[in-house]
Design a protein around this nucleic acid. Sequence first.
RNA 1: GCACCCGUAGCUCAGUGGAUUAGAGCAUCUGUCUUCGGAACAGAGGGUCGCAAGUUCGAAUCUUGCCGGGUGUACCA
Length: 561
Amino acid sequence: MEANLAQIIRELYDVDTDVKLTRPDPEFGDYATNVALQIANKLGRNPRDVAEEIAAKLREFAHLSEVTVAGPGFINMKLTASVLLDNLEEVWGPTYGNNQDGHGKTVVVEYPSPNMAKPYSVGHLRPGNQGWAAKQLMEATGWKVITDNHLGDYGAPLGIWIAGFLKYSNDEALEKDGVYELGRVYIAMKKALKEEKEQDGHELADEVQDWLLKFEAGDGQAQLFSKRFNQISLDHIHAVMSRLNISTEYELGEAFFAPRGKEAVQRLLESGVAIQNEDNSIIVPLDDMGFDVPLLVQKSNGAALYATSDLATILYRESEWHPDKVIYAVGAEQQFYFAQLFAMAKKLGIGTELIHLWFGTIDQVNEDGSREKMSSRKGVILMEELLNQAEAKAHQVVEGRDVSEDDVKKIALGAVKFSDFTSDRRTNILFDWDNIFALTGFSGPYVQYAAVRLNKIVKEYGQGSARVEGYDYEAEKAIIAKLLDYPSVVTLAARDLEPHRIANYLYELARDMNRYYESTQIATGEVNDDEKAARLGILSKVSQVFDHGLNLLGIQVPSQM
RNA sequence: GCACCCGUAGCUCAGUGGAUUAGAGCAUCUGUCUUCGGAACAGAGGGUCGCAAGUUCGAAUCUUGCCGGGUGUACCA
């Protein structure tokens, strides 16, 4: 249609325009365009007249049932529902929604990369949700995707754990509370270290440092502690990721890349990108890239930093995987750091597109009503606690119905995940129990419920027919039009890594479905065979899109709810 | 100080490659009265889109300035 319009304009006025169709309010039409307004100025003509001329030409197209000009010069077009369905049938298939934009290209997606020192908290909800959605969107658009969980399993936390454990804890407590005990020890020790520093002491800090040195020297006891603590933490992370229904192909953490950091720094020095200060620290000056602060890649005591292993990570991925793109699902707080990191990579001649898939903070409301980022200081909510509560809520709602434990988990997870996708990833979200567990309105369970209802009907009465001759599909028009929109929604969501577009779309589709369902009998009552076959056919398509879209968000459709 | 993000209904948020009457959910009020599943549907009230100027035939959307908030700003992870 867009091409046709462009052609008409070329013939009428001899100008090339990029025509865009929009979806106006249904009372105006099914599609609309404001090209007349855009070109009228150029032509020095009245936009309304131009619109009328274009509309006259458009009326020659048989499949447009109505073409009108409105307002200052909008062209509104109406199509019959069966023409819309023909259009849909042309592009329909078992993988409807997917495309091959990324064919032949490889992308590395890094998520959720939790810090291993503390238990998995809601602070890691977004890296998992957004990272997973990014992975799904890239796959849906034809990319080869490699996923990597960049674990924070190296460095100071180990020293803090060991020293803290000996000071504040014991085997019994660790046995009993596992990662939660480790988290307590870590936080207590961090606090003690901070207090010590404020009083210019260094006894505890030395202890931590000693343990790190012992570990690096291969000391048996330190190795044993490391192995034990890491295992507890890793088991916990895997358990939570499994509950969240997310996973990664690789798990190459800090510990894996740390030894390669030295080489990376060497390369920086040799290429002249980095310089060594008199105090032995090594920095990458970035003033030529617009940064007033250089990136520190080696401390004055010779120790490595994040930037060091992150650079080693980039180099490793380049040589092993040759990606065209790397996506880091990490919070907005690290925007400045990633900008520096990417600038350094660029100076080193790395041409791969590096993307920081950032997202806003998770906030809490203070007593005075102001909002602030959730922090361990003010008390974070643990992920397992969140999931437990979500499941309890779901249980409560399905009480008395025959719903499996598996389905309850899907509903709980649907609510939690979908709430993250209701707003743009860049928006700081307010952590609110009512919101995150929402089961009605613009929520995951609302969409899941619509899908479940429809699936049951299809299961009971059949899949219907793709196209029933003689049926006008007018009752299904809004749904057909909505289905036609889906591929472009996926394309945009993937292009900008904006999964909330998918959530918005699914909600609207579910709402259209519920309205339709309310007003139209599908398979019972006074419905003839043609109507039944036609309607069930549409339902099957909607069902497929619900599955596809929710799957992009990492949400499953329960069999019962 | 500087950088990035944000400011839209009582609350939480969409809408920002300019465009026909700014939309949802929650909350409030009213109706459907439960038929293929009501976690639903229909409706009402509620907004000078932070403020001011500019660009434009047209600005929540683009530009500039200001006000307010959040996050970050090399030896932390």
